[in-house]
């Protein structure tokens, strides 16, 4: 039996207005990701990878086309309903970590669990932080952590809810090579342990090769799908 599709993009186009006129960032992109799959979206800077990720996760809306995430057509629901679709089911890892500066590491990891109404937030967060090797940094604020440590908090937060799908946007982009390598290893290890679907955006072809499938974007168009 074919695993079911968790996210599907149909003829996505994204345009923005700029002083020079309308700029097309994505043009007629269609793709789908099946449950449990790991997919890398690769391409050079400015090729539209991150924009595609934002659309797939429902963080932004396409100009035309549609995205179906977990069975919901994201263009047909409002911002609040899109948030509900993500709550507890979708995890994120960003290039610039995006931790809440006013929350401790522990509170940051608890956040998605609490937003999804899970009762055992603290226990789960403790386990998650221990798993990423930050058991003695739980009460630290993001500003007191190094870049690598912050990204580990972000990974612990991303997996805290045991999401069905994880979106990662250049997760090593802000880290040195060594740290980046360790972070990617951690990400793939956790992904394997939890059986999560992974959509990873990267300009690093080598990281891309660690995924089961690679989609290449160039100037906003899908130019190749590699297995």
């Amino acid at each position: 039996m074919t695993p079911e599709i968790i996210v599907q993009a149909e003829a996505l186009t994204k345009q923005v207005s700029s002083p020079e006129g309308v700029l097309t960032i994505l043009s007629d992109v269609s793709m789908s990701v099946r449950k449990g799959e790991t997919v890398a979206v690769v391409g050079v800077s400015g090729s539209g990878k991150s924009t595609l990720l934002g659309l797939l996760a429902g963080l932004d809306l396409p100009t035309t086309g549609r995205v179906i995430l977990n069975g919901t057509d994201l263009s047909r629901v409002d911002e609040d309903q899109r948030a509900r679709v993500r709550a507890g089911r979708v995890g994120f890892v960003f290039q610039n970590f995006q931790l809440l500066p006013s929350f401790t590491a522990m509170e940051n990891v608890m956040l998605p669990l609490e937003l999804a109404g899970r009762g055992v937030a603290e226990q789960e967060a403790r386990l998650g932080l221990t798993r990423v090797g930050l058991e003695d940094r739980m009460a630290h604020y993001p500003s007191q952590l190094s870049g690598g440590e912050q990204q580990r908090v972000a990974i612990a937060r991303a997996f805290a809810c045991r999401p069905q799908i994880l979106f990662a946007d250049e997760p090593t982009g802000n880290l040195d090579e060594n740290t980046g390598g360790r972070i990617i290893q951690l990400l793939f290890d956790l992904n394997r342990e939890r059986g999560t679907t992974l959509v990873l955006v990267t300009h690093d072809r080598e990281i891309g090769t660690r995924c089961e499938r690679r989609l290449e974007l160039s100037a906003g168009r899908l130019v190749g799908a590699l297995h």
Binding site: A57, E79, A83, R86, A87, Q98, L100, L111
Partner: peptide, 9 residues
Amino acid sequence: ILRTLGATQ
């Protein structure tokens, strides 16, 4: 960030 993590209005 909160929205991304699924916070409702």
